[in-house]
Structures are given as structure tokens and as C-alpha cells.
Write a protein that binds this DNA or RNA. Structure first.
Lengths: 190, 190
DNA sequence: GTCTATATAATGATAGAC
DNA sequence: GTCTATCATTATATAGAC
């Protein structure tokens, strides 16, 4: 029943490389040439695996959804209390601090870019937030009742995004650690 | 002594148009062709007023700094209490809600793009945040003492950015009004 | 499945007429 | 000061050989 021997195809390589480059450079600036160079294929090869650039974007968003889903499941499996699980979410600000300081948050960056482009995939990219929100809501419900669960979930994501955004803007790792500590205190106080 | 008859030159037109387009589309996607069309000049004309695209960016950042400086002075001149002045800052989330939902925050968007591009002007764009932070710190110091002033200023900017980011991502005006109401409550409680 | 070659459009930038 | 014409580069995308 275990999942074994899942082949890593060229299509998967394209998606993984595009995922990283879209995070680092944005969707518009991520070119076929750059992805091709990164994984050593030719530009023409893309159109065997994808109809156009937008379909790569769709695949990347789908890939991110799956990745996030797996991460949330792991946080849940490895931690028995909702307090510990929510702590995992908060700590991403620390474990990924180098990337956040340089590139910001992958979710909000893409969502914002697609919003400004008036891109059809904007709604899909926003679903990543919904995934986190739903998961956090369930954890907060376990922690202290259903009434405030969604408010707490939303509030935490707002704080998380604000910290990531400002730390990136000011390129300030201390801001990251100090504001993250406040989040832990807030969680403790609930 | 009053400032009268300041001519609006072509250079000013370019800067104003670039300011708006950079907000809406980002720096990379804002082309000379698009700016030229917006203000009805030719593409070749840019290079009489600016050496290259980066110099337009510098001028736009300088323009935004001046605009922000004026805004902060007005908030201060038109309101006698620090509480009212800080309220002005919070209320931008409401008065500019349409733009925020569609495009996000101009400051953090540019700062993030330049950070990811590893662009030299990144530091300059971050100075806009410093401008707000310094002004807010002074208002909070007037409000309740110097010890907590900078922490309050930073915390407010973090919240503001988080609200703008998430409202943009979820395209949710209700989130904007609800979280802004929380900010007002927080200010009241200080 | 992967490649090379190419078509087409848009970009930042330059030269020079007026 | 503003324009037209042009260049070099890069982008997405297509056609067809292997």
C-alpha cells in the first residue's frame, strides 16, 4: 500500500524548477530560457509537456497545494496538541527566514502578482490561503472552542503576513525574531 | 513666499505616470511604450529626460517620498491629537480599499520586487517605511511615552501590511473593514 | 520525448532630423 | 524638446528533424 517508485519525469522537473523560480523572480520574469537552463532541457521541449506558460503556472499552483497539504498533515501527525501544531506554522517565519528576508512569502507574492495582472489563475493561488485558514481554524477550534476559531485563524495569518512583508521590506532578521516571539506569547495567552 | 506657478513639465508627467503604472503593474512590467501611450509622448523622448529606466525608478521613489512627507505633514497639521493622527494612518486601509484589494500596498510591492531583483534601489524604496515608522514613533511617544513608541509604531505597520496583504490575496473587503476595526480598538486601548 | 531552427512581437536603448 | 527610424536582445510560441 506504500507509495514507492514514483518516477520523477521531465514534467515534474519543469514544475519544481518553475516553482522555485516563480518564488524568487515572479511569474512574469520567469522565462522558459531560465527554467530550461536550470534543468538542462531545450526551450522547445516545454511545449511537449505544456500547452503554454499559463499551464505551467496552473501546474505550479497545483504542486504548491499538494506540498502544503502534505506539510499540514505532517504537522498534525507529528504533534498531538493544537498548540504545538499552530506553533509549527508560526515557526516557519524562523525556519525560512533567509528566504523570507530575500524573497518574501511565496503565497502572497504570487497572489499579488496575479491580482495585478488580472490573471485567471488568481483565484487558484488564493486557495492556498484558504487551505491554511481552514487547517488553522480546526486547530483553534480544538484549542479553545468553535466561536473564535476562524477569527483567530485569520488574525494569525494576518500577523504572519505582516511580519514577513515588513521583515522583507526592511531586510531585518531581528524584526522577524521579535515579532515571532510576540506571536508565541499571543498563542500562549489564548 | 507661497509656492506658485510650479510648472508641470514633461518630466513630471513621466514620473507621475510611471508612479501609477509601477504601482499597478510592477516596475519590470511597466514599459516605456505603456508610459508613453499614457501621457502621449514618443518612446524616444524618454532619453532626453532620463538616462535609462533605472533613473525613472529613482525619480519615482523620490516622488513617493515627497508625496508621503506632505501627507504626514497634513495629518499632523489638520489633527491636534496623536490619537487622531494615527487614526488617519489606519484609515488609509478604508479610503484606499479599492486599490488595496486590486493592487495591494504600493510601498511593500515595490520593495519586494526590488528585493527579489537584487536591485540597487531597494534600500531607497525601504526608506518609505522608515518615514512612516519615524512619524508614527513620534505620535506614539506623544500619546503614551517614549519607551514603547517604536514598538507600537512597528507593530502597527506590521498589522497594516498584514491586513492589506491578506485582503488583497483573498479579495475580501469585509476582512479589510473588520481587521481595521480591530486596529482602532487596539489604538483606543493604549 | 527531445532537439534545432525559426516566426513574431515586445523590450530598452541609440542616432539623428526637425 | 520632441519626433521617427532603427538596433540588439529577449520573450512566447511553432514546425519539423531525429
Amino acid at each position: 500500500m506504500a507509495e514507492v517508485d514514483i518516477k520523477t519525469t521531465t514534467r515534474d522537473h519543469i514544475i519544481a524548477a518553475a516553482d522555485e523560480l516563480i518564488y524568487q523572480q515572479g511569474f512574469s520574469k520567469t522565462s522558459f530560457a531560465h527554467i530550461a537552463e536550470k534543468i538542462s532541457i531545450s526551450r522547445g521541449n516545454f511545449y511537449y509537456h505544456f500547452k503554454n506558460k499559463d499551464q505551467i503556472l496552473d501546474a505550479v499552483i497545483h504542486f504548491r497545494m499538494a506540498k502544503t497539504h502534505t506539510t499540514l498533515q505532517q504537522w498534525e501527525a507529528l504533534n498531538s496538541t493544537p498548540h504545538e501544531r499552530i506553533t509549527c506554522y508560526i515557526n516557519v517565519l524562523i525556519t525560512h527566514q533567509k528566504d523570507i528576508l530575500r524573497f518574501g512569502c511565496a503565497m502572497s507574492n504570487l497572489s499579488n502578482e496575479l491580482s495585478r495582472l488580472d490573471h485567471l489563475a488568481k483565484g487558484n493561488s488564493a486557495m492556498l490561503f484558504v487551505l491554511y485558514r481552514t487547517w488553522l481554524r480546526r486547530q483553534f477550534a480544538l484549542l479553545g472552542g468553535k466561536q473564535m476559531a476562524d477569527k483567530h485563524a485569520l488574525h494569525l495569518i494576518v500577523q504572519w503576513q505582516g511580519i514577513a512583508t515588513l521583515a522583507n521590506a526592511l531586510n531585518d532578521p531581528n524584526l522577524l525574531t521579535q515579532e515571532t516571539a510576540k506571536l508565541h506569547q499571543w498563542l500562549q495567552s489564548l
